[in-house]
Design a protein around this nucleic acid. Structure first.
Lengths: 224, 224
DNA sequence: GTAGAATTTTAGGCGAGGCTAAGATTGACG
DNA sequence: CGTCAATCTTAGCCTCGCCTAAAATTCTAC
């Protein structure tokens, strides 16, 4: 029933993708996974069967997709390796943030538990990846989507749910990376865009994009 | 005809293995590759055909195996990534030397040219991997095998051709890692073992093992 | 130079993981 | 409640990379 070393790259990719969907509170769907992984829905169905056979997901035809405890443990380990790789790339090798995710996607499958542990040691057990996602299991999530954030209150960006290079580059331009302080100034009457003020400047963030930015009220604890 | 990004892991493994054999002046053979890659000779034949189709090796049935210029360029790039990965693992993450090779074998396929370049930058363009192999193309090789080394002269270990964990661990115990200074004291009359003096102590190194240790007369240049 | 050993290749198969096309199921909406 | 679109699965096929068993070739040694 699936040893750690036994997993193929494809299996790891799927587990990670399912985990990401689940964490994002969107139930993973065949089509959603297909888009995320850039394969056809038919291929996803095939792999879901295999994952079910391996005891990594609970699933029946046309049914809901959920990780089993075993699958969840593995997925966590993979995501952890991914995020540690991101920190190594960003902090040690100074890879530009918008490239960090894609590079880490390849590295995560090549990191042994031992090397992952050493990265964590070297970097002083970082808590967050460069996009603001927790590296180890998180208990509670006090963040909200920028879309739901209250107007005129001090907010701070916690993490970006969308790590694609274009999105990260765009948000870097707008100074909307994790730890950035901002306020919501207005919401567009149609389309639901959000007008934010960052660094004294105002930008409008489209609805879909705003939904992927998680923010919170500033904690007195962290003030650079 | 084979873009860089197009290569599968298996193709990269084979190119690297062929390159290693060629560098070691042993012509690569079907059986040799099969052992090195831990697959059957029949599988090697299959892959050799594919590599020939891709224009990466020149080869005909029962004939000699040689990298084409294109194959050689690719193989060099792969070996370079491997050795840069080794330096990163050894220098930054402090992975024990005997594990470095195996970890790098997995990492090398996951490093983009960009990340490889950044590793080289961060580490100050190192010339050698931790086992003493040159990271970039080497012009001439003034080294000799420990088996051929003259007696009673000061010698220094340049590199280990065999990077397997057991061998590296064993040689580390004998203090016979790159840069170690030694003298050949005697040769066994039968079996061809070599008696060396390192650090004031004498050990006998078996014939096969001694053949994989490259040494040279010390250059006045490097004296730690 | 020829027999036997060693090496290499062919033939035939298998599993992983992808695809397309077509059929099944679900769900949204009039 | 039925219909139609969206979603999901099945069926059938493909490539890659590996395997075993058997045949072909080359090498070695008398």
């Amino acid at each position: 029933m699936a040893q750690t070393g036994t997993l193929t790259h494809a299996v790891e990719e799927y587990l990670e993708a399912i985990h990401r969907f689940a964490s994002a509170r969107e139930g993973p769907t065949t089509t959603g996974l297909a888009e995320h992984l850039d394969v056809t829905p038919a291929s996803v169905t095939g792999m879901l069967k295999r994952l079910a056979d391996l005891g990594l997901i609970a699933y029946q035809r046309y049914g809901r997709i959920r990780l089993t405890p075993a699958g969840d443990r593995l997925a966590h380990a993979i995501v952890r390796r991914h995020r540690l790789a991101e920190r190594l790339l960003a902090d040690v090798l100074e890879v530009p943030l918008d490239q960090v995710h894609d590079e880490a996607c390849r590295l995560e499958h090549a990191l042994s538990p031992d090397v992952a542990g050493r990265i964590a040691d070297k970097l002083g057990d970082p808590e967050l990846c460069p996009h603001g996602h927790p590296i180890d299991a998180q208990a509670d999530d006090r963040t909200m989507s920028l879309l739901d954030a209250p107007k005129s209150r001090a907010l701070v960006v916690v993490r970006l749910e969308n790590e694609s290079p274009e999105v990260v580059r765009y948000l870097a331009d707008q100074k909307l990376l994790p730890k950035a302080r901002l306020k919501v100034r207005a919401r567009e009457p149609v389309g639901g865009g959000v007008v934010v003020e960052v660094d004294g400047e105002r930008h409008t963030i489209g609805r879909e994009l705003a939904a992927t930015i998680r923010v919170t009220r500033p904690r007195r604890t962290s003030r650079t």
